[in-house]
Amino acid sequence: MIDAADLALLSEGLRSAMAEARSAAGLDAALAELGWRELLEESPDEAVALVFGLLGETGAHAPVLNDVLLHAMKRPLGGVVALREDGLAFGRPGEPSPADLDPALGLCRVAWEPLTDEALAAGRRALGLQIVGAGRTMLALAREHALARTQFGRPVAAFQAVRHRLAETLVALEGAQAALEHATDPMTAKLGKALAGRAGLTAMRHCQQVLAGIGFTAEHRFHLFARRVLVLDDLLGSASALTREIGESLEASRIVPRLVDL
């Protein structure tokens, strides 16, 4: 456990490293410099919540999901791990991959090895937290725009249809965040990732609509977060695929697990 003051300090350091980052490789190195790997070894839950939440919010990318998976498999950090059977992985150093929806993620192909249950759970929790972070930024961008943009003589934030879309977005994100705070094993991590994916897509839909024309331009940052959310949702199980899996396991066991208690 690290104390709250240290955590706040570290959080500021990480945030500025992410804001200044020029490349995935540069940020990877900067995070290592700031002690990411030691923190991951020492208090993995806090490390992942902090770093992945911030990666989501800032829209920066460093291939540190590899470390989360390696750590969960008790292997040395710093390598690359395939996320799918076709070998897709976050490259290290991570050259941009222009053919993909989100080139900044620097996707590459490596040899596939099945992930352990622990690795899958840790990876899902991390990706879920990153999606919620990205959703929060989409919401902030839409909120700012709604307050600044005037139509019919009023800020568009005064229109109830707009307000309710943004309220709906917050509800989805908070529900997912709460689930991720309770993601402590493979099943709860799966639920957390599914809820995060769903919330990310909800945020994308509503915020895009509120941002309207300006949000459809490459000049506005919205599209970067939208692209990111679509890819992160797909990795290690999309909301849609996981929801089906969860339903199948309910059907098979005919028991509804009470996964969290007071």
């Binding site: 529900g175 689930a179 809820l195 969860i246 509804v256 996964l259």
Partner: peptide, 23 residues
Amino acid sequence: AASPRQLGEAFLDLHAIRCRSRL
């Protein structure tokens, strides 16, 4: 014969409010 997708959605909603309410 249930529909897994729908059951999954229903359970996800319950899980989200259960976690939120616990907090």
